[in-house]
Design a protein around this nucleic acid. Structure first.
Length: 524
DNA sequence: TATGATT
């Protein structure tokens, strides 16, 4: 292995000689020949600590930047990452070593943001692209600088190549291997990396990373493959998208934290004010991005402040004026927190729910009709001597009107026995997915039109709903007619099962049961 | 159309 050796005394002790470094460091051995294998080297996990923190929108960081004045760089210049440099070498010391390959546009030693400590690496941009290639070929892994145990790293900075050619692939089936994924993506370009994500047990998580050699290739794979097919056993069509950037990953982690602790103000959740401010900004930014670009992942209640929701709620749908309630449909809309029922829907139900031992939740009747009167006036068979329950009320309300629930912003009226969902509750619904064991319901045979909010409204009478989720088909954006509701306690979940399992809506009956535990389907 | 995801 070729090495650098120091042939002079330390130049820091000789300040009268400004730049002796290129004479003090000399090549020994045959290492000056170009490397045949320029890529895939040591991990360098420290290099992003600088750029994952928020930066001012204009201007550059005040880490030591030493552009050669008057030197313009090529449009296609390559920013190099330099690793494994001794911590006592500063820009001025490194410059001579790299200058031999061309004019330097910018050379920056990476310093710890807070301590200012030299991190043993640097970024280097030559004015000419060609210089960068020469430097990489000559130096990368070819010499070891004095005091270092590993050879110097000279290669394009990850910021140069990463990010826009690495794809995240979701909704694979768990049997698909790296090779299967490779075959799938092969037609769209040169694949540099293909990894199936696996858990600790080695089982596939049903997703993968595929890195193409160019952005264009990656883009063409997205166009061709995203949503193009559904793998056997996968719950939705194939997902092909650019992998998260560091920033997105940070956001994701924060969202998870927020969900986990049930805290909605990052300034309270996180200990350091800089982090809190950052978290806050990131999340706001993320919310804005999502609302603007693919609002489908967000409910209106996420995208708009509560006051705005209330305004939206005042609008009518289907050209019908608000508050034209009939006893049945009015109750339905009341029950679901909707406000403008259609006028002509009175289809009686044929099959009634099985209600066992559920104590009805007190609820008021805004139209002046008590629930029991509504019920019998509709010609329904009586199935028990119990007083009417929340489920009964809902049963009446649902009949024949579910087609009106689709696009409506929920949370605009007070549901039975409940107060209006607070903003925190609405946000939490997106963040906090599962409740404790025994609190999570799986609901099948939902009306096609039901979204997360309608589902939540339907189950609010039985307790505090911490989340509700209707499964959507990614390709068609249609409900798959099943979903989850989580309560904060098992008794509410049981009450909801008792009342709502078998509950008829239109021609279908709801199936409401405890969600299968995660490991239930595992063999052995 | 059958159990919330996955970086």
């Amino acid at each position: 292995m070729a090495r650098f050796t120091q042939t002079e005394t330390r130049r820091q002790q000789q300040p009268q000689q400004p730049h002796p470094a290129h004479t003090s460091l000399v090549f020994t051995g045959p290492g000056a020949t170009p490397s045949q294998q320029p890529l895939l080297l040591i991990p360098h996990q420290h290099q992003y600590s600088q750029i994952t923190f928020p930066k001012p929108m204009n201007g550059s960081e005040s880490i030591s930047i030493h552009p050669e004045s008057g030197n313009m760089k090529d449009q296609d210049a390559i920013k190099l990452f330099i690793g494994q440099i001794p911590r006592n070498l500063e820009e001025k010391d490194l410059k001579p070593l790299f200058e031999q390959f061309g004019k330097i546009h910018e050379l920056t030693v990476l310093k710890d943001r807070y301590t200012g400590m030299h991190k043993g690496c640097a970024f280097l941009t030559y004015c000419a692209r060609e210089s960068a290639i020469k430097a990489q070929n000559a130096l990368h892994e070819q010499k070891t600088l004095p005091g270092m145990t590993r050879p110097i790293q000279v290669k394009p900075a990850d910021s140069e190549s990463r990010g826009d050619r690495k794809l995240f692939v979701g909704m694979l089936n768990k049997q698909q291997t790296e090779e299967d994924v490779y075959r799938l993506f092969e037609p769209y370009g040169v694949i540099e990396e293909c990894t199936v994500l696996r858990g600790p047990d080695g089982n596939s998580k049903g997703c993968a990373f595929v890195k193409f050699s160019t952005h264009a290739e990656a883009q063409s794979a997205i166009s061709a493959l995203h949503g193009s097919q559904t793998m056997p056993g996968a719950s939705s069509s194939l997902v092909v998208k650019f992998a998260d950037t560091d920033k997105e990953r940070t956001i994701r982690r924060m969202q998870q934290m927020v969900g986990q602790f049930g805290i909605f103000n990052p300034a309270i959740a996180l200990p350091f004010s800089t982090y809190s401010t950052y978290a806050h900004a990131l999340m706001q930014q993320q919310a804005a991005i999502m609302a603007a670009s693919h609002g489908g992942y967000l409910t209106p209640s996420m995208a708009f402040p509560t006051t705005q929701l209330h305004q939206m709620g005042a609008l009518s749908i289907n050209g019908l004026p608000p508050n034209s309630m009939t006893p049945v449909s009015g109750e339905f809309h009341q029950a679901l927190g909707l406000s403008s029922p259609p006028a002509n829907i009175t289809t009686p139900s044929i099959v009634t729910p099985i209600v066992n031992g559920f104590t009805g939740i007190p609820h008021h009747q805004p139209n002046g009709h008590p629930a029991v009167e509504t019920m019998y006036s509709n010609g329904l068979p009586s199935y028990s001597t119990q007083s009417p329950t929340a489920a009964d009320t809902l049963q009446q309300a649902f009949t024949g009107v579910q087609q009106y629930t689709a696009i409506y912003p929920a949370g605009t009226l007070t549901p039975i026995g409940q107060t209006l969902p607070q903003p925190s509750q609405v946000i939490q619904q997106q963040q906090q997915r599962e409740g404790p064991e025994g609190c999570n319901l799986f609901i099948y045979h939902l009306p096609q039109e039901f979204g997360d909010n309608e589902l939540m409204q339907m189950f609010l009478p039985f307790g505090s709903v911490i989340s509700s989720k209707v499964f959507m088909d990614r390709a068609t954006n249609q409900s798959k007619c099943f979903g989850f509701v989580s309560f904060d306690n098992p008794a509410s979940a049981q009450a909801a099962i008792q009342a709502m399992n078998g509950f008829q809506i239109g021609m279908k009956r709801l199936k409401v049961q405890l969600k299968r535990p995660k490991d239930a389907s595992r063999p052995y």
